[in-house]
Design a protein around this nucleic acid. Structure first.
Lengths: 136, 136, 136, 136
DNA sequence: GTGGTCTAGACCACG
DNA sequence: GTGGTCTAGACCACT
């Protein structure tokens, strides 16, 4: 029997990211951080919706997109499970996505007048929480 | 009289950011990079709209938001000018925005399976392009 | 100005595929077949919903998934446009997906007691409609 | 007395097909491939459920559908047996199912950018594995 | 006008 | 019980 614990997820209403995105990011991090491993069960759509006090459809949408991106796979009647991680994107696509994320991040941050080193330290700190599968 | 050159801005239709955002980011970068300095005039709403082949309302909205954030100020009958450098946001707000940008960036990048050092190097490289005022 | 014609799409109620999937497959074929090329506008969410007599949310879902798969990109306030085609998936992932599709197809067809040549001819006929970008 | 060996069936949890479908497809393949011939006994519902570590209800459902499609028939008190080869579906129904399977297959494969010949070769290879009865 | 998000509730297939 | 699909309608941001 797979365990199905309440996840350490929280929805911040002030966050400009849509709820769906917050759920996706949160679960991606749990997986990337090793707190959820392949085969682990995720909370049910209805259960997580109750836990977060949001509409089940919103959770279902987040789960569906995570499934489409290959992070989890659903089995009707059984629930959702963390999928084996595998490289789904071509190297070119990965490069393009890194460029886009970078562009956006710099655009968001450049006007805040932070010291470059401060920003780099923060990025490094966040990244260190998620030992990449390559280095693990 | 201030110079009023066409700005080095371009709108990329494939970019997921809304056009308003692209304009704002672009102008912020020009200011952060020292290509626009306090007192410089910005192109007129209609002029920039023509230059970029977009709706003047879109430019007007971008200018309005840049004004609200303190990057530019309008002088009646003369046009828009780059504002004096000053602290435009509260420290609390700046911190919050950094956190959000960071959250989103990590979320975008976490599944791409890049080495942490690779990401940090790219961030550092981008930041160094816009650090002129700090280092000058 | 981009043209926005009614697409040659039809929804078959008897089809076991969900409506969303039928829309996606139909649009993929129009793109793969060259009837829609990069930059072409697609019908609006509400317009297509009216045309097909279905709920706008259903169309929106299909469009969102097409966007996630890189076939189209949406620009708020403007509409949906056919994206440039590019190889997004790794070779391994492409191989896995071909294997899966093949498995399912054979499973569906093996019990129907058709002659192998009949099946092959049908597959060939369908494929010939969509000159691959490689051979085009 | 008919032999009742454990079938060469396996359930793959990663497979997107429901378990019922996997069982049906597997048995159809064994019959189509000649490994099960008319009159052979199938494992009992409980036995197959144990063998595959799944719920007996799931096996029972698969068997029921195989019976409805005419692949097997139950003999009271004795168990399930492979039925005589006969035309199980109307031509119209067979044609419809082929169309559907084809539609889905093309939809799955169209975006993967494989050469048509590659796909055809793969289909041919898979079909040749299950053509024994036709060619025998 | 455009697409995007969220809520609410119904219905289905699966186990 | 599980996830998946569809409908219906509200609200938001963008142009």
């Amino acid at each position: 029997m797979s365990r199905r614990p309440p996840l350490m997820l929280q929805i911040v209403t002030g966050d400009p990211r849509p709820i769906t995105r917050q759920i996706m990011d949160g679960i991606k991090r749990l997986i990337a951080g090793g707190e959820l491993v392949a085969g682990d069960a995720l909370p049910s759509v209805r259960g997580l919706a109750l836990q977060l006090s949001i509409n089940p459809n919103t959770v279902a949408k987040a789960y569906a997109e995570l499934g489409a991106e290959g992070w989890v796979h659903a089995r009707a009647g059984l629930g959702l499970f963390v999928a084996e991680q595998r490289q789904r994107l071509s190297d070119e696509e990965r490069g393009r996505r890194l460029d886009e994320a970078l562009d956006r991040f710099i655009g968001d941050v450049i006007g805040l007048d932070f010291d470059s080193q401060t920003i780099l330290d923060r990025v490094a700190a966040e990244l260190s929480n998620y030992a990449s599968r390559k280095t693990a």
